[in-house]
């Protein structure tokens, strides 16, 4: 019991005290045991930070260094190499896919959330929408790609069914394996994702606000334009950014849909990594750095936007 001094001390310092008897009884090294007891929290916190440093931060830093340091020191040539036609197209496609599928998800998710949250909606409908959204938002990648290949692929059942009706969608220029097709496929997880994100915000729209605007003689359109949408805007924008991010960095779904034959940044990086194309490792690093830059900008805007979104939730 070398800890008597400690047990008298107030709150935080007394942590080592009560555990002392147990340790003293076991080995008679109370001082060491108590020290260990105090150190344990820091060991675990340190372990997590070290692990993150080694396997998340270090790989990222190395990529960025590789992008900007050539054989003769600092260089921007690899980074500006991203403006080469083939990589510029990949970035353009990824950005278009991100924006297009985020807009689809935004509109679809908002409308579905709003419709199913109406006071008149049966509660069973709400339960179904909520639980299905949770599943669909997580249903992505390879199985999702095959589900859409079975549906809208060149031999998909809907494609063939429409053909029987005299509508040849592939003849009309549609392809599941294009950016349009991918936007439709991505909508399967983007819409539910948006629905999950926006539901709390819509529920936060108080009925009193609507009553007040009705009482003042506003039309439904005026209510939405002047009250509803301005309040929802930060949440919608935040959702848009998250959706953009999930589509921009998607790899599994486009790869399985097109077998890797589409110009997207993620696919290009994996081609460099697996040696499918002859190029310097620096190209892969530069592409990755470009993606990280885009995502960092997205996250910074998101953190600003979400601060505004929290303002109306009380």
């Amino acid at each position: 019991m070398s800890q008597t001094g400690n047990t008298i001390a107030p709150q935080p310092a007394s942590f080592g005290g009560p555990s002392a008897p147990r340790i003293a009884a076991s080995a008679g090294t109370g001082g060491l045991g108590a020290m260990l007891g105090r150190a344990i929290p820091w060991i675990f916190v340190g372990l997590f930070l070290l692990f993150t440093l080694a396997f998340l931060v270090a790989p990222t830093v190395v990529l960025i260094v590789q992008t900007f340091i050539g054989e003769k020191g600092f260089t921007l040539s690899y980074f500006f190499g991203l403006w080469d036609y083939q990589y510029r197209i990949a970035f353009e496609n990824s950005l278009i896919l991100g924006v297009a599928s985020a807009i689809t998800g935004l509109i679809g998710g908002f409308l579905l959330a709003y419709a199913s949250l109406q006071p008149g909606a049966p509660s069973i409908l709400r339960t179904i929408v909520t639980s299905f959204s949770a599943v669909a938002a997580n249903f992505a990648g390879v199985p999702l790609a095959f589900a859409f290949i079975s549906t809208l692929g060149s031999l998909g059942f809907v494609t063939i069914f429409l053909k029987h009706l005299g509508i040849n969608i592939y003849g009309m220029g549609f392809s599941l394996y294009s950016l349009t097709g991918m936007t439709i496929t991505f909508a399967y997880f983007q819409i539910p994702l948006m629905l999950i994100i926006i539901t709390p915000a819509i529920q936060g729209l108080r009925a009193q606000w609507r009553e007040a605007s009705d009482g003042l003689g506003a039309t439904s359109w005026q209510y939405w334009r002047l009250v509803g949408l301005p309040i929802l805007t930060p949440s919608l924008l935040g959702g848009f950014l998250l959706l953009f991010g999930s589509a921009f960095s998607a790899y599994a779904t486009p790869y399985a849909l097109t077998d890797g034959n589409i110009a997207l940044v993620t696919i290009d990086i994996s081609n460099v990594l697996s040696g499918n194309v002859m190029s310097d490792p620096q190209v892969g690093a530069a592409l990755s750095t470009g993606m990280i830059l885009v995502m960092a900008v997205v996250l910074v805007i998101y953190s600003f936007v979400s601060r505004y979104a929290a303002r109306w939730r009380r």
């Binding site: 990222t60 990529l63 590789q66 993620t266 990755s288 750095t289 993606m291 990280i292």
Partner: peptide, 14 residues
Amino acid sequence: FVIPAVALIAGLTT
């Protein structure tokens, strides 16, 4: 979220 999966693999393999 900021470091896409493919980018993390690129870094890890390097």
